[in-house]
């Protein structure tokens, strides 16, 4: 089975984002970028499946500007077999991403698509579900355990109340949560090897997909910052403040 893993290039999670002065978005110039952390978990899962003999190829796709090829190389250095880069603006919406991924699925016929449950930049949490629906496939979202047997997958989902177990028909979409696995680091020899792995490049036009944004960004602004608080000396003072000043207990 071939496993397709879409990966997104986002601002590194350790970087504090800054809103642009003209309120058109956040500053991306000269900011450290990295693979979306949830997508790293998806790559890792695909690699583990291949190592266990449950997948024979791990194909990574990334949609965005030329620099997204670095993100694909990161996944190849982790151990993925092959990459596809689809040239598009950085700010592409999940609906358009899902349409492009559908076109890739139709060309590549994977048995499973593993995605991160959300990207840490737009926090939309949409792409996997949209792709599943466009393909008419089942979905397992927010998954912390995955077990595939024949044409079914048993998934454990992290839901608001705890854990939920469902069975889905393959081929399927699985979006991964934090506790599915811990992604590996790429070793130096593997980083060197990744440079020679095949990486195709396409455009949205090649796939005949309309990627025009549907939403208009009116403005992006900083949230109101909280006023600085005080340090209390001890527990008595804390309880006194909560009772008599904040009046919350």
């Amino acid at each position: 089975m071939k496993v397709l893993v879409p990966v997104k290039r986002v601002i590194d999670y350790n970087v504090k984002v800054r809103v642009k002065a003209d309120q058109s978005g956040v500053e991306l110039a000269n900011v450290k970028m990295a693979m979306n952390p949830f997508d790293e978990i998806a790559v890792e899962q695909a690699l583990r499946m291949r190592e266990a003999g449950n997948a024979d190829e791990v194909l990574v796709v990334s949609i965005g500007p030329a620099q997204n090829q670095e993100t694909i190389r990161t996944a190849l250095a982790m151990g993925a077999d092959r990459g596809i880069h689809i040239e598009a603006p950085h700010e592409i919406e999940p609906l358009a991403v899902a349409k492009l991924l559908k076109a890739v699925v139709n060309e590549e016929n994977p048995g499973l698509v593993l995605l991160g449950k959300q990207a840490i930049d737009d926090d939309c949490n949409q792409t996997g579900q949209m792709l599943a629906s466009m393909l008419g496939w089942a979905q397992g979202t927010f998954v912390s355990a995955l077990e595939i047997a024949n044409d079914k997958a048993k998934v454990t989902r992290e839901v608001d109340g705890g854990l939920e177990h469902i069975e889905i028909t393959m081929p399927a979409i699985v979006t991964v949560d934090l506790r599915l696995n811990e992604p590996r680091y790429a070793s130096l020899p593997n980083i060197m090897k990744a440079k020679k792995k095949p990486l195709d490049s396409k455009t949205a036009g090649d796939l005949s997909v309309d990627i025009e944004p549907r939403l208009t960004i009116v403005k992006v602004e900083e949230p109101e910052s909280r006023a600085a608080g005080i340090k209390v000396a001890d527990v008595q003072e804390l309880v006194n403040k909560l009772r008599n000043e904040a009046k919350v207990i």
Binding site: E93, L95, C124, N125, Q126, Q129, M130, M134, V159
Partner: peptide, 23 residues
Amino acid sequence: ATTTGKNVMPRVAAELDVMQISD
């Protein structure tokens, strides 16, 4: 925007060819 809403609504949006507004 519960785990139920997050799970279902993007499917509906995709079928209607609409970009969802999350959260």
